[in-house]
Design a binder for these strands. Sequence first.
DNA 1: AAGTGGTCTAGACCACCAC
DNA 2: TGGTGGTCTAGACCACTTG
Lengths: 242, 242
Amino acid sequence: MPERDHSAAIGPIYLRVRDHIADQIEQGLLQPNSRLPSERVLAESNNTTRVTARLALAQLEAEGRIYRSNRRGWFVSPPRLVYNPTEDYSFSENVMAQGRTPATETLEVTPTEVTAWLASKTGLAEGDSLVRLRRRRQVDGRPVLVENIYLNARRLPGIERFDFNRSLWKLLREHYGLELVRKQIEMFPTALIDPQAEALGVTAGTAGLYVTRCSRDQDGCFVEFDEEFWLHDTLSIQVEVG
Amino acid sequence: MPERDHSAAIGPIYLRVRDHIADQIEQGLLQPNSRLPSERVLAESNNTTRVTARLALAQLEAEGRIYRSNRRGWFVSPPRLVYNPTEDYSFSENVMAQGRTPATETLEVTPTEVTAWLASKTGLAEGDSLVRLRRRRQVDGRPVLVENIYLNARRLPGIERFDFNRSLWKLLREHYGLELVRKQIEMFPTALIDPQAEALGVTAGTAGLYVTRCSRDQDGCFVEFDEEFWLHDTLSIQVEVG
DNA sequence: AAGTGGTCTAGACCACCAC
DNA sequence: TGGTGGTCTAGACCACTTG
């Protein structure tokens, strides 16, 4: 983590409120996943208004130190999940290896076609058939990402009949003898808007990280395009190279 | 880019204002780096108040579609810079290859020592000597990142005497015969706070991407630890893996 | 000097959640 | 039903940038 500037108590009210709460979190007075005082209480105890209290909370949310649960309150963010998108991996195993509890829900499995946008990403021709898979994944009961996966139906006959609440990468290996070669990974910070915000139970505009991966087999044949929408405070990307 | 939900005009005012502005940007009515109408004008033309207009602007900012320049106004974000942190590379060359104009300013060069935090990152012992380098980098005149670089003074004798407004990677190669081996890369979205926010001329709490890289030579000897603070709307990470 | 965003007040009503 | 955040109003003064 970048080191925090612990100097000067001067400046806007909302920054002083922010630092006050941040200190309580650092000192362990507020434990991960515990609830903060309500906005009205924070406003009153800092002799200010709700608007200003919300400015302070928005700062901490942007830093990834707290998160909100729709109309239930503000909570202290637990440590970020370490994630290496360059590796074939099992979400569940990765989460458990970090002492957390994973869960996966399959929201949708639909046959679909390559759109112009997907054609540019995959190199397939527009209209080629795909299977679209939409999943939500949780860590310790909190949804942390939704993903849209587009599978090459021609390359993976019968794929739509499997149980997708397990590791897709293992399924491809065991049933199709595939070793995936991750070809292109792209990611950037952006806001989560509907329908992703809704699926995650957060307000539109919540900060997120958008990650895509385009995978091929050993022959360069397109297998899978994966589009992930993460809540921004839930992950730390870590990659080793060289 | 994730595909946008272009449905339903129902819902909160600020989301309708957001979508209205977003459409204007997509249709090219508002060009990259051009100024949006002022908050007061946006409020009035949408029959609402400044607070609500600012909510809409905050949404677009979180998506990375607009950015603000301190007390000057809101501007349309230009395309994201494509960046591959796994490669040794020259910032300037990368920016120019994408048809943009780079600039680098060296803010600070100071001898310093390994702190507990740096020791955990680098494997050096606390108190070992380092050279700390702080730089700000711009694209088309807009600052997009500040970075703190910690160089192994023992491994790089005389390093403090060089001109740091050029490619550090080339300097290490040409003057020390070093090929860097990027060992560990870490990144996550977080807010930019002081002193980074100040160096970039943005308000505290602006969304950013924090990237660190720890590099070693062929013998595994620590050479450089790099800590970058990017404005979140300015970059797209793209990595290819084998 | 005029205009901009930055900060702040003091309220209000609504939708949703837990009890 | 009472408490939570979500949304919204109608102002105000300040700090800074620009002409």
